[in-house]
């Protein structure tokens, strides 16, 4: 309903403007946008680092699918330093994904990242913090929707201010209905709608219940992302929740990234720049300290 209100206000504004308005194509001279290195890197407790490198694209002009595919950065020098060893990552052939078999994520360590490619060098740093698992996790039906609902959890935030969290979830059961029948419901972890990260600024040291709706990929055209099942888990779903303690830089990136993506294109919204923790580049280098829980919605 709220979205609709906005739409009507917009219609109203448009009608008003239409009285006399004239429109023309213009060239907007934004400052020369040289391509920047975009890092999407993850290091998780017990896992090897995984880094995807791409190049940014100019905002204006044409972008083709092939361009997007050709956009990953090949042959970059990617170095991770955990304070004792300096490890140069290997590229997985094909896409611009880099990994290592030497470094494994450990709680309490800080990982410095240096990427050199296309004549640019970008740096970043992230830490793996102690995990803060959920106390409990359950499914609860949303209002009078008999089989649809949200995932609920109970969390006790430690007394120290500054904890940041990220919640992602995946349905690992298979569709027994609809066009995708037989396929796994979610191929990977997905951020909930409304944002995957939060901090303890207002909830420091408290113990409370919190609910998460189901998320969807951008531009998803799957049936259950368009019908009444949208945003909801369904009775019978097997839900795996990955709940991670993250550091401030990672939190800031995802908070602002998700905020921008959800508000995009709304002329009544205020612009949302994304706060990256990559110096000289874009994207995020995030250390995760996850705990996993699985429930069956019923």
């Amino acid at each position: 309903m709220k979205k609709n209100v906005l739409k009507y206000i917009l219609t109203f504004a448009a009608i008003t403007a239409l009285f006399t308005a004239c429109e023309k194509n213009v060239t907007v001279e934004v400052p020369e946008a040289k391509p920047l290195i975009v890092v999407e890197g993850v290091i998780e407790t017990g896992q090897h680092p995984l880094i995807l490198l791409t190049s940014s694209l100019p905002f204006f002009g044409e972008i083709s699918t092939s361009q997007i595919l050709a956009n990953s950065i090949q042959g970059a020098t990617v170095v991770i330093n955990d304070g004792t060893i300096s490890d140069t990552l290997q590229q997985i052939p094909g896409f611009g994904v880099y990994t290592s078999t030497i470094i494994t994520g450990e709680v309490g360590k800080t990982y410095k990242l240096t990427v050199t490619a296309n004549g640019q060098t970008v740096t970043s740093s992230t830490s793996i913090l102690p995990a803060i698992p959920l106390d409990s996790l359950w499914f609860k039906v949303d209002g009078n929707k008999d089989s649809l609902g949200f995932a609920w959890a109970h969390l006790t935030d430690p007394d120290t201010l500054g904890n940041c969290y990220r919640w992602v979830a995946q349905r690992i059961n298979h569709y027994t209905y609809g066009p995708d029948s037989g396929k796994i419901k979610d191929s990977t972890f997905i951020s909930p709608v409304g944002g995957s990260v939060f901090e303890d600024r207002y909830i420091n040291g408290r113990s409370f219940d919190i609910s998460f709706p189901r998320g969807a990929f951008s531009f998803s055209t799957k049936e259950d992302d368009e019908n009444e099942e949208k945003f909801h888990f369904k009775k019978g779903d097997t839900i795996v929740v990955k709940f991670s303690a993250i550091d401030r830089g990672c939190f800031d990136f995802w908070r602002t990234e998700e905020s921008q993506v959800s508000s995009n294109g709304n002329p009544f919204g205020s612009p949302q720049p994304v706060h990256s923790n990559i110096t000289g580049g874009l994207g995020v280098w995030g250390g995760y300290s996850p705990s996993f829980d699985t429930i069956i919605a019923q």
Binding site: S56, S218, G283
Partner: peptide
């Protein structure tokens, strides 16, 4: 405030810079 460039995240998000 105009975007200068865009980039893609692996989850399909198109992000403006």
């Amino acid at each position: 405030t105009f975007p200068e460039r865009i980039y893609l995240m692996s989850n399909g998000d198109i992000v403006e810079d």
